[in-house]
Structure formats: C-alpha cells, structure tokens
Nucleic acid binder design. Structure first.
Lengths: 175, 175
DNA sequence: GTCTATAGCTCGATAGAC
DNA sequence: GTCTATCGAGCTATAGAC
C-alpha cells in the first residue's frame, strides 16, 4: 500500500516492496504471481477492512450524506490511504492499467449509493436525474479535494468544502 | 502531450514520443535535454496556448463562474487535454515528481482566481473564508468529474454537475 | 540537426538450489 | 517458503560520426 501510494503502480518496484516486508523480490512473487495481481490484491484487502470497519448496517438518506462529511474529516488523518486512492484512481485511466476495472466498478457502485441517498434525503422521485447529477458532483468534490490537499495540505479544508457542497445541493433540491 | 496523457509521465517513453514525431529517441533529447524537461515544456506550452485563446480580458465575478461551466462543456470535446491534466495532476503528488511544483503553483493560482470570483459574485467581505471554501470545492468538482468521465463517459455529465454545484453554492451564499 | 551505438541502469519474471 | 542467479527486456542519457 505505502509503495503504490508513494510512487504509483508503474513506478513502484517489487524490489522496494520486498525490502519493506523483509523478503527478496522473488519472495514476493512467490505469494503474488505478478505485480498487477499484487496491486489488485492490495485494493481488495483495503475494501474488505473498510467494510468490516463499517459494521453491519449502512446508513441511508441524509445520514449517509452526513457520513460522507465524516469520512472527509477522518481522511485528513489518513494521508496514506488518501494518497493510494488519489494516485491510483487517476493512473487507472491510462492505457491498459490493471486497476481500470476495479475503479470503474467502484465508481459505479458509489454513484448508485450516493444517488439513492440524495433521492431519499430530498424526497425526490426515483426517476429524477438531478439526484444522479448531484451524486456525481459529491463524489467528485471529495476526490478532487484530495489531490489539492496532498499537494498543499494547509490550503484546503476537505471537511468544510465537502460539507458546503452537500449542504448547498440539498438546500437547492429541497426547495 | 498525447503520450503523457495516455500513459502518464513515468510510463511514457522517449522512444514512443520520438516515433510519433518522426525522430529517434536521441533526436528528441537534442531538443529537450531530459525527459522531465520535456514534460514541463509540454505543460508550459499548453498554458501559453490556453492563455492566447482566452484573449485579453479575463471575465470577473459571476461571469467567470459561468465561464467555468462553459469550460466543463468544452472539455467534454477535448478528451486528450482532460486526460493529460487528470493523469498528471494526480501523478504529481507522488515522490519527486517533476510536475509537482507546476501543479502546486497552478492550483494556488486557480484558488485565488475562483475565490475572487465567488467573493465578487456573492458580494462577500474579502475576509470571508467561505469564498475560499467554495472556490476549492468548485475546482475539486471539475477535477473529480474528469476522472469519472474518463473511466465511463456515459455515466457522467460534467456540464450538469459542475453547473449544479456552482448554482447551489451561489444560492446558499447569497441568502 | 539527426543519426547509430552503447553505457549503465532498473525492471518483472523464471529456474532451480536449499 | 525463501533464496540466488539469471534472462530478456525496457529505459534515459551520452558520445561521437555524418
């Protein structure tokens, strides 16, 4: 995780990763048959631990959207994970990137979740495309803030900007 | 530009770039003394042509914010440039990336511009930090949408989501 | 101004000893 | 299960001919 976060997938080397875990490069490849399999394994492990941490019940509607602001707040204390996702999600749009499918699926799932939450929180009709438009924006704000924050942490308040966008959109859609 | 956009800085090779311009790899290094100098030159050239295209007068206040929505609309027709910036800005947060200074400065300038525009459009006091919070969010939305759009163009309407965020924030701050 | 040639790396992956 | 050794490929950068 740390190596891919610090250097991206292409520029991280198995030798460096092997060093950090006290193995040789061939030793790492004994457990993961290729570098790209190691990457996808890291991403899946990350998902599993996140899901465990979340507990059994996922919040809905307004509560879920408030939870997103909390996530932004917590992220400011977890630079490593923020960097991992910020770097890899953008790198994944390059040609033949091994995490492309992972991120496409991940965003599709996120968009569906957040769209439902907005629909519910605003009492919209399920067919109202504005919920989808809003959801995409909310996800995008959180992602975009991370890149700015990684480059210059003091210049960005991820919690405040995320909260402002969610509150403003909700106020507008409920009117 | 195309090579860095398609593969990122690290994974793009001088040999590939040389091929595309009908030179050998050594030929390219005759004009740009190193790969990293080539990257920064590409980014600077991109800025120059963008500035020329903008004309003499930069719009202010509300007009500038409307102009951002137009930019999002135009970007949907310029996948190459969108990909270049989306890939490189995120890659730039990795260790010792040659474009790190460029993007730190670029975001600092953007934040200042957009903050001024929000302050003016909403008639805020110059010391009101909400303008900065809003500006960071607006920039972040545009960036974040690009990654989603590059992964799945049909799932995202960059114009609509950008417009929704700007309109919602302005409505909230003017109240 | 463009080339060939090559130095000097680093990389991922495999083979096979222990 | 972990290692050493090595293959084959890729890379940037430099030297020097033309």
């Amino acid at each position: 995780m740390d190596a891919f976060a610090a250097r991206g997938y292409n520029n991280a080397s198995l030798a460096e990763i092997a060093d950090r875990v006290g193995l040789t490069q061939a030793g790492v490849l004994h457990y993961f048959r290729s570098k790209s399999l190691l990457l996808t394994s890291v991403l899946e492990l990350r998902d599993e631990t996140d899901i465990e941490q979340l507990g059994t019940e996922r919040p809905h509607g307004l509560e879920f959207l408030r939870h997103l602001v909390d996530t932004a707040r917590r992220n400011a204390e977890r630079e490593g994970i923020v960097r991992l996702y910020a770097v890899l999600s953008a790198e994944s749009v390059t040609d033949d990137h091994p995490a492309q499918v992972y991120f496409r699926d991940r965003y599709a799932g996120l968009r569906a979740f957040v769209t439902d939450a907005v629909t519910e929180a605003c009492g919209l009709d399920a067919s109202d495309i504005r919920a989808r438009t809003a959801a995409n924006a909310v996800i995008a704000v959180m992602d975009g803030l991370q890149v700015q924050w990684l480059l210059e942490p003091g210049a960005v308040d991820m919690t405040a900007s995320t909260g402002l966008v969610i509150d403003s959109i909700l106020a507008g859609l409920r009117r």
